[in-house]
């Protein structure tokens, strides 16, 4: 009995264990550090400072120049960029100078009198009879 046990143990030690072993199904590690590190084939083994300061932009202003939201954000508003392109404060005071009055026609179109059609004029002139004639 004892001799067999010793032989078995000796055989177990003599058995070669290959370096290649099945280590199980590949899985994605539970925690991965995504912070930028030098590429393994990088000759310098280091990253430029622009990688490591957490942002590729030196300031918020620079970031905003590059930021995207339904297209690039416009930081600088230019005079030739149409309605809304120039801030209201640039357009001068809203109130008319003393003794000057705005004509209704100087106001935006929505404040103008509604134009009358020929049918409406006729309806008014005939006291509404033109509508049923």
């Amino acid at each position: 009995m004892f001799a067999t046990k010793v032989l078995r143990q000796a055989a177990a030690h003599a058995e070669r264990t290959p370096s290649i072993r099945f280590i199980g199904k590949r899985t994605i590690p539970a925690s991965i550090d995504h912070s930028p590190k030098p590429h393994p084939a990088s000759p310098t083994g280091s990253l430029p400072p622009s990688f490591t300061n957490g942002s590729s932009h030196s300031s918020f202003s620079v970031y905003r120049d590059h930021a995207q939201q339904f297209g690039p954000l416009r930081k600088t508003i230019k005079a030739d960029s149409g309605i809304g392109g120039v801030p209201g404060s640039y357009l001068g005071p809203v109130e008319p100078p003393k003794g000057v009055f705005f004509d209704r026609n100087d106001l935006p179109a929505r404040f103008h009198r509604q134009p009358l059609t020929a049918a409406e004029i006729e309806a008014i002139e005939t006291g509404g009879a033109a509508l049923v004639a």
Binding site: P36, H39, A41, S42, P43, L47, S50
Partner: peptide
């Protein structure tokens, strides 16, 4: 920027300094 040999500089996940722009192949390291 490029390095002194004209390669695009990337990190270990192939990201350039602008993280959503990545780079692989002959134009970078290796």
């Amino acid at each position: 920027e490029l390095d002194e040999r004209g390669r695009v500089i990337i990190d270990q996940e192939y990201r350039t300094k602008i993280p959503h722009i990545r780079c692989v192949g002959d134009v970078t390291f290796g």
